[in-house]
Each structure stands twice: as structure tokens, then as C-alpha cells.
Amino acid sequence: MQIVGILITGIGVLFLLLGSYGIVRLPDVYNRLQAGTKCTTFGALFTIIGVGIMEPSWFWKTLIIALFILLTNPISNHALGRASRKSGIPLCDRSVVDKASEFEQYKGKV
């Protein structure tokens, strides 16, 4: 049981480090949101569940913490992405396509 817990925690910690590295490396706000809030969601989920497996009497409380992270992280991610699009931050120059102007015309149609 101990070894399984350490293994799962190790995977989670590795993904946390990769998410933080992606924050430094990727070129613009939207790509940083991709790496920064989703690799870390996954990493934190695995880390917390792994600690719960290492100490079996803590398992239910760690499950609740993981549930809260799973519920609240997409909301803040969505809010930050929408805010940076509304405040007019451009995409980086490696971007391929931008359909935001096409999206605005649906608002009048409905």
C-alpha cells in the first residue's frame, strides 16, 4: 500500500513540476492557461489521492479536497481566459486561426 501511494504521489508531483515549467516556457496567456491550470489540476489530484492511499484513515477527507479542486479550477480557468480575451490581449505570432470575430455574429442572430 505504501509503495502504491508513493508511486501515485510521484506521478502527481512530476506533473506539478511540468505545469510550472510550462508557465515559464510557453509564449502567450492562453497557452500558459493550458499548461498552468490543467497539468496542475491533474497533478494536484494525483498528489492528494496518493497521500490518502499512503495513510488509509485520511482517504475520505483527501477525496473531498480533490473534489473541491476538480470543481473550482475549471471555473477560475474559464474566468481568466474570458477576461483576457475581453481585455484585448492578442494571440502569439505562432497561432494558426482566430475565429473570435466570426463568433461574435452569433450573438445578433439568436
Binding site: 498552468g36 496542475t40 494536484a44
Partner: peptide
């Protein structure tokens, strides 16, 4: 900076 704040809170929970 706001994205960095959001990330560092999740890392802090772990």
C-alpha cells in the same frame, strides 16, 4: 501574473 497566481495556489494545496 493572474495566471501565475492561480497556478501557485493549486500547487500550494498539494
Amino acid at each position: 501574473r493572474a495566471v501565475a497566481l492561480d497556478t501557485v495556489t493549486t500547487v500550494t494545496v498539494a
